[in-house]
Amino acid sequence: MTQTVAVIDYGSGNLHSVAKAVERAGQSRVLVTADAKEIQSADRVVLPGVGAMGDCMQGLHERGLDLVVLRVIHEKPLMGVCVGMQILTESGEESAGVDALGVFPGRITLFPKSMKNRKGHALKVPHMGWNEVEQRQHPMWNGIADRTRFYFVHSYRYADATAEFAVGICKHGTPFAAALSKPNVFAVQFHPEKSHDAGIHLYRNFLTWDGAC
């Protein structure tokens, strides 16, 4: 039977690309939805997000979907993307005073100013473009070569790359977490839907992931 993937629509911009990429990845019915019942009855859930963490949290909260997210991760696999990953942490420097979902401990902070690469050139913020992700053992990486490049665009990041739940590490000036995971949750800072074949492959892995780390 074809499985259903709910892409949570909470007013955070265009979800067209995410939905199309999941459709491209394999047999599934993709629902872009803000309906709690649809999200709860889906087989898998994608939590996207662009813009500021505070706006995203507000968008979720206004629709009562923050609690839905916290509930579904006990039942089925959820994939967080970009700010959808960031709001799974506790809070963010960009939106001080706003409590995020707290699925992972720690907070999201701005890249430091005046970062240099090893040639002494200034590093730009936003961190925009294709960067390598160093993988930690995880079934979601199956079939994707270590250090494959994914497309990033962000100015804030999860700086603790040594956290035990950091399963993908990227470096821009200093290392940061490109992927976080715990049972049923896999969240990435980059945009798989903008990362060409590697990104589609990751969504394909998500469609068969049993939620185990």
């Binding site: 590093l123 925009m128 473009g129 294709w130 390598e132 250090r147 990033f152 470096k171 821009h172």
Partner: peptide, 8 residues
């Protein structure tokens, strides 16, 4: 290794 320069 780090961010790749982009061709657009």
């Amino acid at each position: 290794m780090g961010l790749a320069k982009r061709i657009i």
